[in-house]
Structure formats: C-alpha cells, structure tokens
Design a binder for these strands. Sequence first.
DNA 1: CGAGCGCTTGATTGAGTTCAAAAATCGTGG
DNA 2: CCACGATTTTTGAACTCAATCAAGCGCTCG
Lengths: 196, 196
Amino acid sequence: MEQYKHFLQEKAALTPEEIESLTSSLQSKTFRKGEFLLHAGEVCAYAFFVEKGLLRSFTIDETGKEHIIQFGPENWFVTDRSSAYFSEPSDFSIEAIEDTTVVLIDAAFISRASAAYPHFMRFNEKALQNHIRQLQKRINLLLSATAEKRYLDFIRLYPDLTLRVPQWMIASYLGITPESLSRVRKELAKNNFKPH
Amino acid sequence: MEQYKHFLQEKAALTPEEIESLTSSLQSKTFRKGEFLLHAGEVCAYAFFVEKGLLRSFTIDETGKEHIIQFGPENWFVTDRSSAYFSEPSDFSIEAIEDTTVVLIDAAFISRASAAYPHFMRFNEKALQNHIRQLQKRINLLLSATAEKRYLDFIRLYPDLTLRVPQWMIASYLGITPESLSRVRKELAKNNFKPH
DNA sequence: CGAGCGCTTGATTGAGTTCAAAAATCGTGG
DNA sequence: CCACGATTTTTGAACTCAATCAAGCGCTCG
C-alpha cells in the first residue's frame, strides 16, 4: 500500500491524514507470475494499482492471436475502464508477468474519494485525460509508423520494460510478429544501435 | 443551437429551463467547406459540437501524409481533448468537409455546468469514458484486422458517412492508401456485397 | 471547355507474415 | 550445481497484403 499512498500524495496533492482515512478501506493482493487478475468475459470490477511487479492486459482475436493492450509496472494502473465503468463483460484479460502486488480500487472507492476530496476528483479526471492522450498517441503510431519506429518509440518510453518483458510480448504490443521484431533488432544492431 | 439543446436534454437529463440557462452564454459559428476550425500547432480552445454539416480532424506525419483521426457529423463533438485539457499545442487540424455550423464549448463552460448540475457532470464523465472505449476499439482493429475488415467495420458503424465522405478520406481513416481501398471495394463488389 | 481532382486499374516493389528448424536461454528437479 | 526439457529468440525461404509508381477515365466547377 505504501507505493499507492506515496502516489496519491505526489499526484493528488492530498495530506497524509486524508490519505490514511481514504486508503483504510482498500485491500491489496498478491498474484504469482502467470496468475490471472481478470479473465476475458468477466466484468472488470477493479482498477489494479501495481505496488510491485508487472502486469499485462491483452485481448485474443478470433484467430486466437494475442494482442497486448498495456504493460503495468510499478505505479501504473491496469484495468479495462470501459468494462468497469459500463459494467460490461471485458474483452481483456489481465495477467501477472512477474509476482505482483496490487491495490484493488473499485468504482465505489473512486466516487467516495471524489465526493470527499476535490483534489482527488481532479486527480482522477487528469488520469482519464492522460489515458486518452496515450491511446491517441498509440493510434497515431499504428497509423503512420513502421515496425522499427514503433519499436524505437517503445524502448525510448519504457527502457526498463525492454529488459523485464519477453520479446514476443513486446512484438505483440507493437502489432508485429516475434520474428519481425527479431529482425528489426538485428538491423538496428548492425547499424550500431545500442539499447543499453 | 437547437441540436445541442436537444442533445443535452436526451443525454444529460437536464430540464428545458436548466438547458436554457446553461446555453445562453454559448456561441455558435458557421464554417464553409474547406475552412479550418483549428490548425495544428495552435492550442485547441473548444470542443466543437456539430449542429449541421461534417468535420474531420487529422494529423500530418513527418512524410507529409495525412491521417484522419475522426469524422464529426451532426450531434458529434470534435476536439483535441489533450490539447484542450492540458493547454498544449495540438497535433490536430480540424477542417469542415461540408458547410458546417458548430456550437463552441470551452473549458470554462464545462466546469461551470459541472459545478451547477451533477447531471451534466455525469454526462461529461460518460462522454469521456465513451471516448476511451472508442479509441480502445480502434486500437484493437488496427492491431488485428485486415484492410477489408476495417472497412466493413467502418461502413457498419457509419453507413451515412460512406456516402458523404470522399473515399480517399475513408482510406486515410482506415490507415490505408486510396488505391488499396478501391481494390478492397472492387473485391467486395465481385463477391456480391452491397453497401447500400 | 479545359484543368484539376477523385477514382480506378495495372505493374512492380517492399515490409512484414508464415512456416520450419536451429540456436540460445531459462527454470526446475535431481 | 548440473542437466534436461521447455520456452524464447534467431535465421532462412517462400509468400502475401498493401504501398508505390504510373497512366487513364470521368466528373465538376470555374
């Protein structure tokens, strides 16, 4: 819970007392590598705040192929907002890539906190807007950039993930095959590019 | 302004009196076909609610290619939320595809209306969540679907736009070239597919 | 009526996929 | 700590979908 409290203090500008009073009702939970926090078809009841570890959310298309929507390392939220907000079955599954401890945040918590603290409400609104910005950016990349550009963008934005996430998952996130990503990397290496 | 008032009544569950009091401060404006409502590089000060006509928002990548983000027919909002919310220069341009009348909605209006009417606040929140759902769906399509599937999805969702929007713009929205879209359509026609 | 724009068609190219198999790495039990 | 099986990554060859380049047609609007 410490990470989340710290996060609230930083981003929501709440006092330590306010944070204690808010978070006293929250549960945290630990999942082993490979465990599922959400299965496609279920309604996503929570936003998962990652205290420690690493999550991924992904969909499976009609040909059985996985498409990674998001990685969630420390201090990130992973959820299916649409499912949670509209109480609809989710297309997403959420899985722990590493042993992971999360804080469970449900809709009731959000509305209570928003009602009690204007700062929290603004923080929440800002998170939504940031999410939109990020989705929009990804659409732009998918529309306009080659596999290589998308990969370069990825390692620039998430250099640490490049080390923690298997390559085939990065390929899935980028929308290419593992073979293609391997070739992209080979090409970059040939041209003297050093990721680390 | 009538469309917008009607829209608020339907979606925000506000009374006619509330709506009158709210919208009295709003401006509406008409643009000719080809006119720009926003140029890339400017901060997007408004959300444009389309009363009548048709807008498009689009970006231009470093190779000079246009990528259409969104079409805005009657009763839709067109804006760059990120630019408006964070007061950053926009990557988008917004242009009238037809002669178009819009209602100009600025951030101040949103916060006033949200403060005065909880119904409006919920309506606004819901619009944000819908936006996220729509963006997420588009990412899924771009990751998993072929040009043909994306086109079929488009005409299913926006059958009227198929008639009002030039084909090369639809191609741009789908992330393919006009030539490719022409071939996709030819193929569909051969297999006895009737869009209208 | 002509210039320009949008759409189509054809030929060629290219980025990325698919299928197959080898090489490298990981993890787990003995 | 090592060994062995499984997973991941790499490499190769053939193939596919869509892009590019180029040319022609039809429409409209100036």
